[in-house]
């Protein structure tokens, strides 16, 4: 509305600044800009880009043949299968939890809400190794349920269930954390309108609530999947590193690396790096979309 008096215009001047006689009051000098941009780019090159590039360069060090040969290893395939299984259990479980928790927290008032949100964030604050350890304490041989489980010949620790449980723990908060702030911000008016028009609870949820949060939900699911497939510390504690049985992809990377089979280790790692890059691409796409929607909303109809 305020085309001249509003602040958006300031930004336009500050960034286009076509060699003005006087520098804007809030603009940094050219050399400072260059220095800081240089520092940032240098720092990120050393810290982010070089390691990322290293993964792919090391993986292809002995040519594409050696790269693809790494995937012919049956242990690699069993690791991939276990990792996919883990994600296939952990992601839907945390998705169901995230939806339930965000519905209860964002759409209703109740005492203890802040405490509940803090508790949901808890796994985020626990060190990965400790996250694995606590499952050992519950399900391990000398754990709370260890003897009882042994009687029925059920093994959790050093077995697939332990890997899955530890993964569920470390990826627990992500979907809920994406959804709760967004759904709280959106309020309950639309849902109330749907109910008043005769929709039932499921219809309201699937036709009104879900479309409003679909991008955040998608990002939460992707992030959870990426973290579930990439978890190392917690899984390392409960898996026992049994090749072909409890080795996930990241653990398989470690095994290969410790055997000095670097090309194979980096080849398998490149698979995980690509998942990470896809996650970032999706996150960026979601953010751009949001920006565009905001810009369109600001422009108004017509």
């Amino acid at each position: 509305m305020e085309a001249v008096d509003g602040s958006p215009i300031w930004q336009a001047t500050a960034w286009t600044g076509s060699a003005p006689t006087v520098r804007g009051a809030t603009e940094d000098s050219r050399w400072l800009q260059r220095l800081l941009i240089g520092l940032s780019v240098g720092f990120l090159t050393l810290m982010l880009f070089a390691p990322l590039a290293a993964v792919f360069v090391e993986a292809f060090k002995k040519g594409p043949g050696a790269y693809f040969a790494s995937f012919r290893d049956p242990y690699a395939w069993s690791a991939i299968r276990l990792t996919l299984l883990t994600a296939a259990v952990a992601v839907p479980a945390n998705l169901a939890f995230g939806l339930a928790a965000s519905w209860a927290i964002a759409k209703f008032h109740f005492r203890g809400k802040a405490l509940l949100i803090t508790l949901i964030d808890l796994p985020f604050a626990v060190a990965p190794v400790v996250s694995g350890l606590i499952y050992v304490l519950v399900f391990g041989m000398n754990g709370w349920f260890g003897a009882w489980l042994a009687r029925y010949d059920v093994q959790v620790i050093f077995a697939v269930p332990g890997v899955i449980l530890a993964t569920m723990f470390v990826t627990f908060p992500f979907i809920a954390r994406e959804l709760i702030p967004l759904m709280t911000e959106q309020g309950t008016e639309e849902e109330q309108a749907a109910i008043s028009l005769g929709a039932n609870g499921w219809q309201t949820f699937f036709r009104v609530t879900l479309p409003n949060v679909k991008w955040a939900l998608l990002y939460g699911v992707i992030l959870t999947s990426a973290r579930a497939m990439g978890e190392f510390g917690a899984v390392s504690v409960v898996s026992g590193h049994l090749r072909g049985r409890t080795n996930t992809v990241p653990l398989h990377v470690e095994t290969l690396y410790n055997e000095y089979n670097f090309v194979a280790a980096f080849a398998v790692a490149s698979l995980l790096a690509m998942i990470a890059l896809a996650t970032l691409a999706l996150k960026t796409a979601v953010e751009w979309r949001k920006e565009r929607e905001l810009a369109e909303a600001a422009r108004g109809p017509c």
Binding site: L44, L48, F49, P51, L52, A54, V55, E58, P128, L223, A226, R227, M229, G230, E231, F232, G233, V249, P250, L251, V253, E254, Y257, A265, F266, A269, L272, A273, A276, L277, T279, L280, A281, K283, T284
Partner: peptide, 18 residues
């Protein structure tokens, strides 16, 4: 800007060997 989140999205074992 997009790459800032890389350490968060990348599995730690991969970061370690890289």
């Amino acid at each position: 800007d997009a790459m800032i989140d890389l350490p968060f999205a990348m599995p730690t074992a991969v970061s370690g060997i890289a």
